[in-house]
Design a protein around this nucleic acid. Sequence first.
RNA 1: GCCCCCGUAGCUCAGGGGAUAGAGCAUUGGCCUCCGAAGCCAUGUGCGCAGGUUCGAAUCCUGCCGGGGGCACCA
Length: 592
Amino acid sequence: MKSLRVPHPRLPFVRTYSCEANISSSVGLTAMTPAALAEAILAAVRAACVDGSISIAAQDIPAEIKVERPRNRDHGDYATNIAMLLTKVAGLTPREVAEILVPRLLAVDGIESVDVAGPGFLNITLDADAHGELARSIVVSGDSYGRSDSLAGMHINLEFISANPTGPLHLGHSRWAACGDALARVFEINGAEVTREFYVNDLGVQMDKFGASLQAVAEGRSVPDGGYHGSYVVDIAAAIVRDDPSILELPEEARLVAFRESGYQRQLAAQQDVLELFHTHFDVWYSERALHTSGAVERGFAKLREQGHVYELDGAVWLRTTDFGDDKDRVLIKADGALTYFASDTAYYVDKRARGFDLCIYMLGADHHGYVNRLRAVAACAGDDQNANIEVLIGQLVKMKKGGEEVRLSKRAGNIITIDDLIDEVGVDAARYTLIRYPVDSPLVLDLDLLVQRSNDNPVYYVQYAHARISSVLRNAADLGLVPADQSAWAADSFDPALLTHERESALLGALGEYPRVVRAASELREPHRIARYLEELATAYHRFYDACRVLPMGDEPVTPLNISRVWLCAAARQTLANGLAILGVSAPTRM
RNA sequence: GCCCCCGUAGCUCAGGGGAUAGAGCAUUGGCCUCCGAAGCCAUGUGCGCAGGUUCGAAUCCUGCCGGGGGCACCA
């Protein structure tokens, strides 16, 4: 996401390619993936340096080289801009560099032809079998296709939603529920160990207002100023009294506390229930109260004092966050002795780090963007690297249109669309997919009318349909005896990669080969929407292939090797769709 | 005033310095006697404005214009 102001550590593309480059099948051929190709190109460059064809210092060989699918099929299977990048350091024109590399690339196993085109692109066409081999390697890899170890050994704390337990989760929260959950899985696929955490703001005046609102409603009075409205308040108040009528007999102060605590427990449980329903699971629900009772606040203060960034002024205790990019210092303890909310934030951060997380990620709404600098300053004040140990992702708000007009979301006013509403209206899969498919730093406007009435036009169905369609083909293939029903029992030597030469087979193979780096890009950029967009492209590639290439034998025709090879290709496509949908937390139906 | 996000097709939006900028929806017209038509094919429009960086900019930088959000000893 572009709102990310902190450069997070990125491995150079080349290094990461190496971890994907060794996908090999059970029969010895190596699939020529984009990763393997990038390795081969770099090897060619190094070889040219060694024999003196090009004079480039080792450190001038770029760390990042692009190997991409050209838009235009006439430009081969893959194109690279390496020659243009080397122009300066080599002191040659792009085309001269390209010409030097051509013969070395032609010598690479799996490359059929290389053309120099345009300003200096190298357009590479693969041998059919090296290209087609990818299908087999995906089927063999199964669930692990797309995994990498780029984040191996990293412990990430991912905090998202963190709503007050004073009302139902609404549409804005649903965006974080879907995107946070997907992002966590993206990190895991890349080898990280992730804890999904929900910070429960169960302390402070909002809780008291909530309790007072419940009490007022239960006693037939009107909700106090600044209190909570909405039918859910009425429902909870009624439930509290129904379950324990004696609550109304308590003394005034105890009654308020009883309403507050009972309301808190019920609301928290409701949030937890709906999130489970939404397939978003949290590993840790962290109570703000627990910060205070566990001594975490004291430990946090001690840590900050030890680092020398705490001072007193006008009777208050301050943290000198301006030392680290904040625009003003922040109060930890007010002159009246009360702790600020910010004090909890600092303690919470220190506590997370003490629990062993290398990286703490906060996903906050745009209305909290003023917190970015102060949170990062907190990390620095605690002696951490604010460019490595903390990240704050800011997401724009979700708006919703209904009947052509914007529906205002207001937690206090009662006119709210909750996650429950969303699930009821469009279902979990469609809701999650729609929320994930847009980058979170752009405002999202959901047209509920469209989402509800025309749900068949939702891209999620397009992707799921591709999966269901392939599943059907594979069922038929098993029924016809082309392959065993159990994919893991397929005979690897029944597949001939060299037969997949149709333009649309090649295009589908190309799309399949993109998956690992899409997953990596989603991880590096913290942008899970890339996976959704990719799946749509992959689904298109499959539908186009299916439209032009008959997979199963017609009627009484004999089974040909091409039939079998196409079945493998189908299975590879289904596997990749399933892997991607799993990351998004969206089901991959075998029938629809 | 200062800070953050966003200006791309009629609408909702993709697009990590590359070749002729893409999807979906909407419009119009084609494609099922056999693997799922929730599909495929065709149909014409667009990067807010002005500079800069370089072989090359929707993309990076600066300024301006327009839209949204935010400034606390609140939570």
